[in-house]
Structure formats: C-alpha cells, structure tokens
Design a protein around this nucleic acid. Structure first.
Length: 314
DNA sequence: GTAGGGTTAG
C-alpha cells in the first residue's frame, strides 16, 4: 500500500490527464481499507487526497475514523490479554477535531461523533465518551438512538451497569432520543450478557411505564422466555406488547415459536387465539413447526382455522 | 456503499 501510493505511476500529476479522480474514487479505496482492517493505510490515503486537489468530505473522514476505531478496539482487546496498544482512538479523535477546524464540507455529523463515542465506551473510557457527547451537543449535533445504543452497549459490556440509568436520564433529557429506544437497547444488552432476569424486569417496567420497546427488544425478550419453556408467560407478554401497538415489525418467527409452545403444552385456548390472530394478520407459519402445530390444533382450533393457517405456509 | 442489539427445529 505504501509503495503503491508513493510510486511514480500513482501521483497526482500523472493521473490528471488519464483519469478523473474524484472524492468517490477515494471513498472506494477508503472503504476497502476499512473492510481490510487497514486503518493506518486509510489515514495515509486521506492525507494524500489534497495532492489530487480533492477535499475529503464528511463520509470520507468518517470511513477513516471508523477504521481507526475498529483497530483501536482490537488493540484494546490485545491489551486486555497482556499485550500493548492504546491510543488509536486518540487518532480518531484528532481527526474529528480536524474536521471541526476544516469547516464546511466535512463538518462532523452524528455518525462521526457516535463512532468515537462507541469506541471510547467499548474501551471502558466513559469519561472520554462523555466529553465527546458534550462536544457534539455544544456543536448543535443531536445524539440519536444509535448514539445512545453505542453508549449503553459499551457500558453494559464493561459491567458498569450502575451508571447506565444516569446516562439514560441525561440523554433522554436532551430531547432527541426516546426512553423506549434507550430501554430497548438496554434489554438487548442485558440478554446478550445473560442477565435475562434483569432484562425481563427492565422490559416489563418499560412496558408498564408506557414506553414502546422496539421490535428487536420485543422479539428477543419473548424468544428468551420461550426458550426457558415459559411459553404461557411469553404469550402473555406478547399480548401485552400487542396492546401497546408496537408489534408491527416484530420478528414473525416469534408467532410460530409461541404457537408451537402453546400447542405442545396443551394451552389450547391460547393457541387457538394466537392462530386466529395470525390468520387475521396473514402471518405465515414457519415450516419447521407446521406438523406439530397442525396436529395439536386440529383438535381444538377447528378444521377451518388449521386449513387457513396451512394455506399461508411459505 | 458513513452507524447498531440477535436467532436459525423438538
């Protein structure tokens, strides 16, 4: 990469006549660097752009910042295992500062700030993350649900759960992220770190406080409860979620998982109710479950219902 | 084609 960049065949002067090199050309290269984990090379390419009379824009900078952050995370992991490596994220942060100085055309946006915040959070550097959050707010850039999610995720993974509620209060207070989005992220994280009981408590609390958890949080929570063989609990939770009207984009597999579980445990009334609602909503059965569901349901739900369900199998 | 949370059969 280094030699290619500095070779005579690839300098600004000789290229101008033969090719049209533009920002997008460089973005293709930067994207490749990012995919290939070549953070230093990405930085080098970025610094080379002015020689082609091309000013990097926000997305070009963001690609490099993401590359650096990903490398920083890897180095951090190495460090935790006894190696060294720290401070790559500082480079990303320096680039961010550079963008703020450069002004128009490459001004940092919510993605830029979020990337750096995410990296700091993953490294357990909540204080640094906070300073970036404050910076973006000062610059009039509102954090969004991804910003919040990155923070919550990092803090959870680092076992700093006690600070997460304070953070949620703070970011929701800013007015650009909803409580439901924050608690959805939290629930997903808690499940991921195997704190399922706490996840369920949090999820139920969110529901009863009138929040609308997002579809992933709903799907994961119900799926988790089903996997504990608590199908009836799962079904009740599903019905509660449905009442809030935030079920529109829930994972459709959940329906089949619930229905199969209800059938297996002979909760016939509930099974028939769910089956009817699936027919109404045109939710298809998942094929791995069809046989067992049909077998149980034809005794309780009626032949017509079963026929309709089966006709929707895909 | 600039960012983010997961599963995959009883």
């Amino acid at each position: 990469m280094d030699s290619a960049l500095s070779s005579p065949s690839l300098n600004a002067d000789s290229q101008v006549e033969k090719y049209v090199v533009c920002v997008n050309t460089f973005k293709v290269v930067l994207r490749l660097c990012k995919v290939g984990g070549l953070a230093d090379e990405a930085l080098m390419v970025l610094k080379k752009m002015p020689e082609f009379n091309i000013r990097p824009d926000t997305t070009a900078y963001n690609l490099v910042i993401r590359s650096l952050c990903e490398k920083g995370d890897m180095d951090m992991a190495k460090q935790l295992m006894g190696g060294d490596g720290f401070g790559i994220v500082e480079k990303a942060f320096e680039l961010l500062a550079e963008m703020e100085k450069e002004g128009e055309g490459c001004r940092p946006n919510v993605i830029t700030y979020t990337s750096v915040i995410q990296s700091f959070c993953e490294q357990g550097r909540a204080k640094d993350a906070l300073s970036v959050l404050e910076l973006m707010e000062v610059r009039g850039c509102a954090p969004n649900r991804v910003t919040a999610s990155a923070w919550i995720n990092g803090v959870c993974m680092n076992g700093q759960l006690q600070d997460v509620y304070k953070f949620i209060e703070r970011i929701v207070g800013g007015g650009s992220v909803s409580m439901g989005d924050c608690y959805s992220s939290l629930v997903v994280c808690l499940i991921k770190i195997k704190k399922v009981e706490e996840a369920e408590k949090t999820f139920r609390m969110a529901l009863s406080s009138g929040m609308k958890p997002d579809s992933l949080a709903c799907s994961m929570m119900i799926r988790e409860i089903c996997s504990e063989k608590r199908v009836l609990d799962g079904f009740c939770l599903y019905e509660e979620v449905e009442k809030t009207g935030c079920l529109s984009s829930i994972d459709i597999d959940i329906y089949s998982i619930l229905l199969a579980g209800l059938c297996q445990k002979s909760h016939s009334a509930e099974a028939a109710r769910l089956a009817r609602s699936m027919v109404e909503k045109r939710i298809p059965l998942r094929t791995p479950y069809v046989e067992k569901i049909v077998e149980h349901l034809k005794n309780f739900g009626g032949k017509e219902l079963v026929a309709e369900l089966v006709s929707m199998v895909r």
